[in-house]
Design a binder for these strands. Structure first.
Ligand SMILES: [Mn+2]
Ligand SMILES: [Mn+2]
Ligand SMILES: [Zn+2]
Ligand SMILES: [Zn+2]
Lengths: 149, 149
DNA sequence: CCTCATTCTGAAAATGAATTTCACTATACG
DNA sequence: CGTATAGTGAAATTCATTTTCAGAATGAGG
């Protein structure tokens, strides 16, 4: 899967007449090695740990490229930072976001997706993408809250 | 309904020891008279038309108060501006957002809401609120696109 | 009606994430 | 190699939001 995504990005780079650079390689590697929903800054700070260092702006631009190429999705979970996760086209899932600890978990449900299509159709609306996020308290935080009593 | 919302806000103001001001009255009136999903700036510019003028910051703070009081919901539809709509607690709907003209329409679907609850339960997750937005091309814009051929 | 503690207002300043600029560097194709 | 083209990153800019602060308004108690 990691190799598939690398290939997709390489092809995208080639098709657009862009260049392959050390920075893009490093960022791609780190991005694919993560299973989190990373903000630009998080990835940037992570990369600063290694050597040589890569600029914030390059991380920013590269994540945008990932999204354009189809190997990443961009999100706004309401914490003021844009986040990215790597995905492959065709696959889809939505999110549960803990308002206490920020943990993000994933789910997908075909029934909901089907109903969404029906709703769109009945409105003469052509869906391009959707956003579905459930905000609340995760199991771990709920347990913690109980302990604290 | 408008009166109900006014009452809710007045009670909120009283319960919190806040004061009733001309500005809050004017902003509330204009907000309740709209059926749109207004950004701070839109409402501010609308109010500037009338006299006397009200500051941007006051509109900003007052919309926040509306949200806290329960008569408004806050949104981010991805255009970079925070938007507000007036609602009553208990009522709920989600949105279709046109990526071409920005039009926002509404829908609600009990089946989806029920499935969301099941998903949360199966994750031990306690939902506080959710976000569901379908982005795409509205019927009007689709028709326009066909004409243009 | 006054008093005055408290809240409100709004211009200006600050914040902070995203985005652009630009001088310099790296890539890649012949 | 040579060189046209794209990339990099520090710094500057943008832009909505949020905070600050000094003067104004509100309203509970007298
Ligand atoms: Mn995800
Ligand atoms: Mn709505
Ligand atoms: Zn949590
Ligand atoms: Zn439209």
């Amino acid at each position: 899967m990691k190799l598939v995504k690398k290939k997709i990005f390489q092809d995208f780079i080639a098709a657009r007449g862009l260049k392959s650079t050390r920075q893009r390689d490093v960022i791609l590697e780190a991005f694919l090695d993560s299973d989190r929903h990373l903000s630009i800054e998080e990835l940037y700070l992570h990369l600063r740990g290694g050597n040589p260092t890569i600029g914030y702006v390059t991380v920013y631009r590269t994540l945008k490229l990932f999204a354009e190429s189809g190997i990443a999705r961009e999100f706004q979970f309401g914490d003021g930072q844009t986040r990215y996760e790597h995905v492959v086209k065709g696959e889809h899932h939505d999110h549960l976001v803990c308002v206490r600890c920020g943990a993000i978990s994933e789910f997908s449900n075909d029934a909901i997706e089907a109903i969404q299509d029906e709703i769109a159709t009945s409105h003469g609306f052509h869906i391009q993408y959707h956003k579905m996020e459930l905000y609340g308290v995760c199991a771990a935080c709920a347990a913690e809250a109980v302990e604290a009593l």
